[in-house]
Each structure stands twice: as structure tokens, then as C-alpha cells.
Design a protein around this nucleic acid. Structure first.
Lengths: 196, 196, 196, 196
DNA sequence: GATGAATGAGTCTTCATTCAT
DNA sequence: AATGAATGAAGACTCATTCAT
């Protein structure tokens, strides 16, 4: 009675737990009972909020995308900042250096695998990417002499590069350290800006 | 004494089937019985050659890496060819345009997810990447004025770009078509070569 | 809150069924699904209460030992009764004459075989035997002129004799009938008492 | 060609391996492939000599009984020896003191469990016991004043006692050591002889 | 006689999902 | 809203047995 958003609260609790589980054990190893345990609720309640395990996973991925964007909101908001600095700062927030970012990246990789055979998942993924690429594009677009097409192309390259390098970093590649990743990204950003 | 290498033959048969299954259903959905069916053998025989499902999956990933390299062997072998043409040709073989390449890429994505929680898998993956990056580096290195470090850096960027763009292409992104992917890669290759 | 001890109840139910199965089909032939069927529950629930088949078997053996002792509790409790009568009565309860006793004996034989390669099982067995031998010893000890050592020795002989004779009776030996077994045991009891 | 009793030789080889396996892993854990390995032959050949696993087990048990009797043949043969010494010597050969005897005892325990649900096995067992009891009876019968019935009764007690005590010894009971077992048996033998 | 690859039935075990309380 | 006992389908894995060579 009265306690208002118990529902919303519980859902968030469960989704956070699900994301943690996905990061730790993968979609493959995700057990509803573990998600419940991690959220401090009973197994049955998860199905009260999410009809099936698949629904839960989808919602978790959406939550992950939302969080990702939210974490970079401040950087995108400051439209007066220097483009180069903005891009470098952006790159920095994507480096899998801290636990939060690493967990998020692991979820993205799981997402890619899952989306390969779930069109809904792929669609949500594409919307998230489109959103994110558009924002990066608008940063490049702030430079004089860079038209929309070029800005978009640059954004595409940078986004893809971040994904590709992170994969290697998360695989524990001995050559792809976080520092090496940052240097490579910055160098490429500079190259793209120089190319105009 | 008469029977030749039934063992090697059977193993290959099973691994091909496993790779197909991984591409279609993912590691998550891989059922030993389906692998057997796909290989035209009984369920028991799979366990005769591979102790556990995990062993089978590992062997399948290694097979995938070996096949990937083998498919580009000819391009790397021709050391007299023009660098730009070679890189463009290389890019072309990585575009997820045909079934074989697409299947292989799907397996790679599955691999990334699986390697996140299996160190052995990650190690095999890193060796495969190191191998492949070294070859691309040696192509860049054929250009006068590009030293080893720069060549390596260029190779890293190109490899990561291919991975990153393919992810988007395989997600069915409406903007990332195979043609767009080829154009973006070629442009970046040219940019890197121009940068020296 | 309302549900009482479903857990304890269900466990007992399952253990009874397991003991029946062990007696009928042996540890070798025990199928979890049969135990479930015998207990009138689904297959999955057995694993809800017992992690593995081995755990179930262990618990069943312990239950068997507990029941065995419980069934003789009244005889041991009456410490004023005549020693000879008490021992004869004890012997009688061990004759594999009725279904309950026979089932229990069959489980003991299975236990011996199983304990040969399971130290935990052997330990529980030894505790049960020690318990049982100590009680028989205390009966012999009630006789004047029988010291503790002798009482213990007599107890050991009687216990071993019961086991040894029962084996032959349960093998269906044509010579070792229940009556013959009773006579042999009583005669030995009398001989031991006479020896002092 | 010509090598005569390859068959008989192979059979023995396989049976010895089977007995060892039964002693080590029990009838439950006996795998035909392990028997083959232990005998140094291929898995298929076992079925050339024994139609089914059950046949193999039966033959192994018979072999065990035959060996048991054979090992005591000398003691029974010396009919001029002192009865008490003969019985004490007999007891000694039954103590699970060395590997051979222990292995044999473990097989007997397995046999009891198996015979509980295999009438053929029980019958062979009973014949073996009858044989063995008759011999012990004839030893007791050599004493003046002990008639056939009494001798038989004494034999029954001694045989059962040996079985019962061995069970406890093989369970690893801390109180039932080999020495304790010998003492208990000798004391009982003396008691029986004294009773006449 | 001997081999070992191949089969396929049999079972344990896991886990998403349901539902009485 | 919440619990957790109960279900049952699904799938990995084992192993006796067969049979082409």
C-alpha cells in the first residue's frame, strides 16, 4: 500500500543483477536463479517482472545501452569545447580501464553474439549504434571544412576502431594494453582531423 | 592395419559440422546431437573423438582460425604485388559477402564472447590475431619510408577496423552494407599509406 | 510462513523410496527416476533435495541405520529383563523373517559393497556398528562375572555371527533357513553365557 | 596356427583382470573396456570370449571361488594334523592380511550384493559355501565325541563368524584389526572345541 | 583370433517456468 | 508483491555391444 515505485525499483535491481551476471558468466551461463540471488529476491519474482528469460536479457541489453550513453552525456553536451579534446576525452571514457567500463564492454560483446540470432536484439543494438555514431559525427562536424558525409565517415571509423581494439584488449592480448589502445585511438583521431 | 586415417577424417568431419552449428545457433545453442547429425554420425561418436562439449568447441575455434589464415595464404604469398592492391584485396576477402566468410565471422564473434570466460580460448585467439596482424604489418612494411613501428600501428588499425565494421554489418545495420564497409576500409587504407 | 516442514516430510518420503529401490535393485540399479516415481514426485524434485545421486544414497544408508536401531530401542530399554531372554529376543528381531527386516538386511549388504570404495560411507557404517555393538555389550555386561572385555568380545561374536548367517540366509541357501539361523544363534548365545 | 590353448589362456587373463576390477571398482563400476585394458587386450575381444558383461561377471565369481578353495587345499589335505592347529591355520589364511586375500574378500562382498538379485549367482555362491562348510565340518568331525550334526553346526558358526568379522575389518573399523580378528576367531574355535 | 571404430539406448542433472500459499 | 517448492523437458555423457576389416 502506498509504496509507489516498488515496481520500478525492483526492475532496476533485477536488471543490474542481470547485467553483472551477463558480464561474469555470459548470456550462456546466465541463470535466472543467479540473477534473483544477485538482486536479493526470490527466483519466482523475476518472472513476475519479466515473462521469460529472453525478455529479461533484452531489457538488460537496453539498460546497458542507456547507461553507456548516459555516462558520456556531459562530454557531448559541451558543444563549445575543442573538437580534438572532446574526441580524446571520448576515447578515454571508452577505454576498458575501470570495472564499470569493462563490465559494460563485456556485455556489448555478449550482445553481439546474442544479436546474431535474435533480430529484436539486433535492432535495438543498431538503434543504439546509430545514436552513438550520430553524436560522434556531430562532434567531427563542428570542424570547419568537414562536411556531413566526411564527418559521418570519420565517426564510423572511430566507432569501429574502438570496438575492434577493445576486443583485443579484453581478450587479454599482451600487445593491446589500455595505454596502447589510447595512443592508437588518439593517433587515428588526429589523422582523421588532419585529413579533413 | 588397412584402415587409413579414419580418425583425422572423422575429426575434420565433426569439426566442420560444429563450426556450422556454432555459426547458426551459437555456442549457446550448440547441441552435440546436432553436430553429430550434421556430420552424419551417431551421437556417441562425437564423444569418442572429443571428451567433452567444451573440448569440441575449442577444437572448432582452432580449426576456424586455421581456415581463416589458409584462405588468405595466396595473397600474403605474393610479395611482389603492389602494396595498395594487396591491402585492398585483403580487405575484400574479409568482407562478409559470401556464406563462407560470413559463417567464419559469426564464429569469430562467438569466439570473443566465449573467450571472455575461458583463458585457453583467449590464448588461442591471441595467437591467431598476432599471426594475422604480423602478416598485415609486413605488407605495410614493404612501403619505403614506413618503419616497423608505423607498419605495426597501421596493421593494428586496419585489423581493428575490419572487426569493428564487420560487427555492424553482421548486426544488419541499415547503414553498414558490404559496399559501405569496403569503401570505408579502402579509404582508411589509403589514408594510412598517405600518412606514411 | 504457513507451510510446515514440507522439506523434512519430502526428504523422508524420498529416502523411504530410495531404500526400497536399493533393496530391490541394488545401488547399481538405482535410478533417480524410479526413486521419484516410488515417492510419488517428479524427477526434478529429488535433485532439489539431494544434490547428486551419491548424496541420496548416502542419506538413505544413514536413514537405514537409524531405523535399524530404532526398531530395537524397546528391547535395549528394558534393562531389568533377563539377559538370556533379551539376547534371544534381539536375535529374533534380526532374523530376516519379515519384509521390513529383509529389506533392511539387503540394504546393509549393499552398504558393505558400497562402503568398500567410499570412505564416508564406511565411516558412517562403522559408527552405526560401534553403536550397536556397544549396546549388545552392555546386555552381556549385566551378567555377574562377565567383565567389560569379555562382554565386548561376546558382543562382537554375536554381531558378526548375525551378519554372517544372514548373508547365507539371504543367498537362499537351502541349509540356512530362518529357523536354522535362530537355533544357531541361540545356541551360540547360550554357549557364550555359559563360558562367562 | 597351432598355438594350442590360446583360448584358455586369454580367458584366464580376462578373468584375472575382471576380478581385479571388481575388487577395485566393484561390480557397479566394472567397465568391459577396463577389463580389456587390464588384460592387455582390445575391448572387442572380451565379447568374443564372454557373450555379455553379466556372463563375464559370473565367470569371474566362479573363478574367485575356485581360487579360494585352491589356496586352502593343502591345509585340508593334511588329515593327520591336530584339529585345533588345523582350524587355527585355516583362520589365519582367511584374515584379510595380504593383498591377495583382501582382494578376494572384496570380491566376495561384491558377490553377496550381486547375488541378491541374480539367482544364478546365488546358486553358484551356495555351492561354493556348501563345499567350504563341508570341509570345515569334516575337520571338526575328526574330534572324538563330536558327531556330524555338531560338527556341522560348529562349522556353520565358524564360517559365519569369519564372514561377519571380515566385513567389519574391511570397513576399516578402528576396533576390528586383523590381530583382533584372529584372536576372536581362535577363542571361538577353542570354545566350540571345548563345548564338544 | 583380434582390433577399435561406431552405434544408440539409458540416465543423471540442470533450469526455465509455474503456482499454491 | 513475494516466496520457494514442484514440474518436466532437454541434453551431455557413458558404455555394453556390434561388426567391418
Amino acid at each position: 500500500m502506498a509504496r509507489p515505485n516498488v515496481e520500478a525499483l525492483r526492475k532496476k535491481q533485477i536488471l543490474r543483477s542481470a547485467l553483472q551476471q551477463i558480464s561474469e558468466r555470459g548470456v550462456v551461463g546466465l541463470r535466472v536463479s543467479d540473477v534473483a540471488k544477485g538482486a536479493g529476491v526470490s527466483g519466482g519474482i523475476v518472472h513476475y517482472y519479466f515473462d521469460t528469460k529472453v525478455d529479461l536479457i533484452r531489457a538488460a541489453f537496453e539498460e546497458n545501452a542507456a547507461q553507456s550513453l548516459e555516462r558520456r552525456a556531459a562530454i557531448f553536451a559541451d558543444e563549445d569545447a575543442d573538437v580534438r579534446s572532446t574526441l580524446h576525452a571520448l576515447v578515454d571514457t571508452y577505454l576498458p580501464a575501470d570495472d564499470t567500463t569493462t563490465e559494460s564492454w563485456r556485455v556489448w560483446i555478449e550482445w553481439w553474439a546474442a544479436a546474431l540470432r535474435d533480430d529484436d536484439l539486433a535492432e535495438v543494438h543498431n538503434r543504439a549504434y546509430e545514436d552513438w555514431a550520430a553524436r560522434v559525427q556531430s562532434v567531427f562536424g563542428r570542424v570547419d571544412g568537414i562536411d556531413a558525409d566526411t564527418a559521418r565517415s570519420h565517426a564510423t571509423v572511430l566507432v569501429a576502431l574502438l570496438d575492434g581494439l577493445t576486443i583485443q584488449a579484453l581478450m587479454g592480448s599482451p600487445t593491446m594494453t589500455v595505454d596502447h589502445m589510447r595512443a592508437t585511438c588518439r593517433r587515428t583521431v588526429d589523422l582523421l582531423l588532419a585529413a579533413g
